[in-house]
Design a protein around this nucleic acid. Sequence first.
RNA 1: GCUGCUGUAGCUCAGUGGUAGAGCACUUCCUUGGUAAGGAAGAGGUCACGGGUUCAAGUCCCGUCAGCAGCUCCA
Length: 614
Amino acid sequence: MALPQVGGGSYHFNSNNFMIEAESVPQVEGPYPLSTLRHSVAHLMASAVQKLYPGAQFGFGPAIEHGFYYDFELPEPLTEKDLRKIEKEMRRIANRSPKIEKSVVSREDARKQLQEWGQTYKLEGLDLIPEDEEITFYFHGDGDVRWGDLCEGPHVDSLKDHNFVFKLQRVAGAYWRGDEKNPMLQRIYGTAFWDKEAMDVHLAWLEEVKLRDHRKLGSDLDLFSTHEEAGAGFVFWHPNLGTVRREIERYWWDLHTAGGYKPVYTPHVSRESLFAVSGHLENYGDMMYAPMDLDALPYRVKPMNCPGHALIFKDRGRSYRELPVRWAELGTVYRYERSGVVHGMLRVRGFTQDDAHIFCTPEQLADEIAGVCKLVDTVLKTFGFEYKAYLATKPPEKTIGDDAIWERATESLKEAAASVDLELELDEGGGAFYGPKIDYKIKDALGREWQNSTIQCDFNLPERFDLHYTASDGSQMRPIMVHRAILGSLERFVGGLIEHFGGKFPVWLAPTQVAVIPIREEHAGYAKGLAERLEAELFRVEAMLDAGHMNKKIKQAQKDQVPYMLIAGEREAAEGTVAVRRRGTREQTVVPFEQFLEMVTGIRDTKSLEVPEP
RNA sequence: GCUGCUGUAGCUCAGUGGUAGAGCACUUCCUUGGUAAGGAAGAGGUCACGGGUUCAAGUCCCGUCAGCAGCUCCA
């Protein structure tokens, strides 16, 4: 999809290059910051709602990352159709009396005013304003559309004298003040920009997000499904995505083997008492599935893998000489998620973590963390993700472990990051109750941030399981346990990957890597030979040899996002060449088959994200 | 879980109380085509599921399940 030309830079989403060129996003300067404009448009919207739905109660209406929203309590539910009506009214109001005026009032006058208007939520909002802060109202409109709002501002001075565009996007429910114990209000989301082109680019971005939705691609590309028969939040991986997953797992195990990790496997079901020891029952019980009775004892499906790994550590005495131990498991866990939150592959009720636990001494901690940081870097770069890392430190209360060990562990995290040139942003007090951690945020091809990788120090589980090792002086010491996941969960990671790549998987991951298409049926023999040569090199090949039209096969292979098509007719058969057509292009390059094979082998084996010409 | 919306063929969707439809995909036959839709015929639906209203329900009502946009919560 080609987007409007903006500021001399063109903007293409759908080329073979899956990344979006972020630098070509236009930055249009208006007379006020964009967030001020959006906040003012939120007011404009609220006044229109007031006009159309007398008796509306108003909640909050701030500017947000890509626009704004305003929460209302209305006698009837809004539909998308009502949004057009509200937009129309907004334009009318803005044209008629566009000035926005600020009015500073006393707390008492503010209260009186809001009582007069009958705005109960706003009155509650008034009480949230600190004593020493100035209280302001902003007014616009006149006559029957005169509208004011308790608001700290700032706002644009006029809704008419500056050029801007806006659009109301959707309506949804939202709890008053974000608390599910409070009543639910109706929220209208919208956006506003200083110029139409910028908004068009933003809307096109939203379209692209929709096109790349892993649920849509999941069905278009035959990747995965969920089933009413199986229940919400349980993912069925189809052969195509199974192939992607197997490649990722193979890569993951190779890296971990090289990194000194040993594989472990632990049961999906264990006695409930195990989770009492680990503390999961107490702290995580709401997320766990109900117990099942086996021989009159309660058993549970595991929500995490760590208790199992702790049991393995505890199975025999450990010496300082064998530390650190690094144990990895692609461990499938089950967690109860409320029905409204399950979402494709990104939020599910059963998933596989790329889990590993490192048991080490405090002295070893920094080196171990550094090793994990390197591993994370390698993996994320392989998939083309940029990332940022955050150091989450000791929360203010309810923690386990004395200050000395917290300090030492936090220092180790810092030291480790420094040793691998990893910049850490501080997330003060963001650690778990059981230890400090480093969290990674990755940025995908659409510029969206995801949280996947995490490295967590744990002082709690070693305590609860009474884990120990014999130190060189013969004393019994407590190991530190490091939990770490790089992908997070395979479901969420691969679901995100589908969107990151827009279904255009790099060669090493692509379910079908090469499609072989004969021009006429009589060339099928040559084509078959090519396919066999590729299969002998362990390529995943689709040999489209049946009697059908070449054009249909090309169309099919393009739709399936196959990175390379080899098209072979009389000339190619005579010369031992292939006409190579790359994903997302219409050009062909005719090269000797051997040359193609060598090129594509290199691309695959280096896990390149490119799909170059041969 | 909550608010609102939705569920008709594999997919996208039409069908507002009276005999279930279209395009694409699929199957068969014809077509032998040099880079994204050749032609014809055919098959395919317990209208998510259960109950109710009605002479009559895909259509109206209630419930359940599943999905969508969010909220809240999370890998």
